[in-house]
Design a protein around this nucleic acid. Structure first.
Lengths: 247, 247
DNA sequence: TAATCGGGTTGACGTGGATCAAACGCAGAG
DNA sequence: CTCTGCGTTTGATCCACGTCAACCCGATTA
């Protein structure tokens, strides 16, 4: 292989890796950055990592060094406690960040697992801090991302604390739908990347309860469900069901 | 009043307000800052606010400008949804920060309410961002605080998703105990600032269930309970109960 | 084509906590 | 001192969801 060809390939890889060329730049960390600033960000997002379905991106207890932006694919995060209980704390899709929990102790506090073949950009955290000292827009945006995670968690706490099974599932599906929509996919038809068991774990329900709720939704004409393929037939109905007050 | 006396009083007030003199500086934002850096932080924590029991520090929907450090007292945060449901998302005590949820949208997403007469330091957020661009230690510490909030929320999600009533209450009491201890108070004896109803809301339980769990703990000799006065008699017992696996 | 396997569905039954209701007890007002 | 009111306790009943178990279905392998 000629030196030229090698150079060209390297350049190609580099371009492929650059935030400034990433079609996720409106979803991901680079939101609102100037061309100039984007260039700087490119330098720090040097590493890409490819994962196969089932691979761990990181594990609870591992040292924390980087946060990760999902470039493609789908992840779940979960926490385990000694006695064997575990809970899925979130599902992450394209453009979302993983690993924010690790900042507090320099140690990851949950597992991150690919639910399908995926690719992430690793962002060394100390570099990110350095860069965000130079680029206020980046700094502020990063703070917003962390804050949004906190707000999201409060929503899940609300869901777990006050909603009943069908309300939880409706909320979950509407949330997924809206996130697919934001990424240019159909908000009405998509397939789930996670099992009934994983949905149940996230929603604080048993897999049988999740399954029954799906069946009920289908009977009522709100959804069509075939295994993991979901079509939402009546968004308004789901929304109404979700906010159906009790007592 | 002589000018001298006035000056002296102002100086006194100023000293009282300064982070560099605050006896919470090892609990609060200033952790790990140099003397020099502390001085700078002092300038931005200019405003103190005093609240009476029941007062709102901020309300959901209000514009976000500052985060707040609890100087003394006790707070709860809660979220409401249209249909009337609400949930307590956290209890904050001395040295803890309030308002992080507001960063994401420039709007507070929950209410913060004083559960007893309290005092907070208001920290204008844009100033904090500015200062943390100059002081890496402050920047990193702030990131850790936000991350810790995310980890805490995951713990609550775990609690709400997988634990049963008595386990939840045990976890709650142990957590309070440990936080009192970290502040130099007795970990074994304290009084609750919140009602059974508020505890229930936080733990995803009804107040009757909380009350029954208290009674049961008392019957089993784990606690003594008199209204809101709690004495923990058997920490190990509580801990064991908390991690008692089911299924 | 049958055999196997893992995820999903469905049914029957049990139970933890919600709901409803009554009574208690402390604190503040008259 | 009694009256009033709110937070709390306690009991009786109910029901949503968990549990247990059988079966189904599509994919994979023999």
């Amino acid at each position: 292989m000629s030196t030229n060809a090698t150079t060209a390939r390297l350049a190609f890889e580099l371009v492929k890796t650059a935030c400034s060329n990433c079609n996720l730049r409106e979803l991901c960390l680079p939101i609102g950055l100037e061309q100039e600033e984007l260039k700087k960000l490119d330098e720090l997002v040097s590493t890409r990592r490819r994962l196969k379905r089932g691979d761990y991106l990181y594990r609870a207890g591992q040292g924390f060094e980087s946060i990760y932006a999902v470039r493609s694919g789908f992840f779940k995060t979960d926490v385990l406690i000694e006695d064997g209980r575990d809970q899925v704390t979130g599902f992450q899709m394209t453009g979302e960040l993983l690993g924010l929990d690790g900042i507090s102790n320099e140690v990851h506090s949950c597992n991150a697992i690919a639910l399908e073949d995926s690719e992430v950009c690793a962002i060394p955290f100390s570099h990110l801090e350095g860069l965000s000292r130079q680029i206020p827009t980046l700094q502020h945006h990063f703070h917003q991302v962390m804050s949004r995670e906190i707000v999201r968690d409060h929503g899940v706490m609300m869901l777990l604390g006050t909603m009943r099974a069908e309300e939880r599932l409706a909320a979950f599906l509407l949330n997924l739908s809206q996130r697919f929509k934001a990424r240019g996919y159909s908000p009405a038809e998509f397939n789930l990347r996670m099992s009934r068991d994983e949905i149940g774990s996230y929603l604080g329900l048993k897999l049988e309860t999740v399954s029954r709720a799906f069946s009920r939704f289908q009977d009522e004409g709100l959804l069509s469900v075939h295994q993991r393929r979901i079509r939402i037939l009546n968004t308004a109905g789901l929304r109404k069901l979700m906010s159906h007050q009790r007592s």
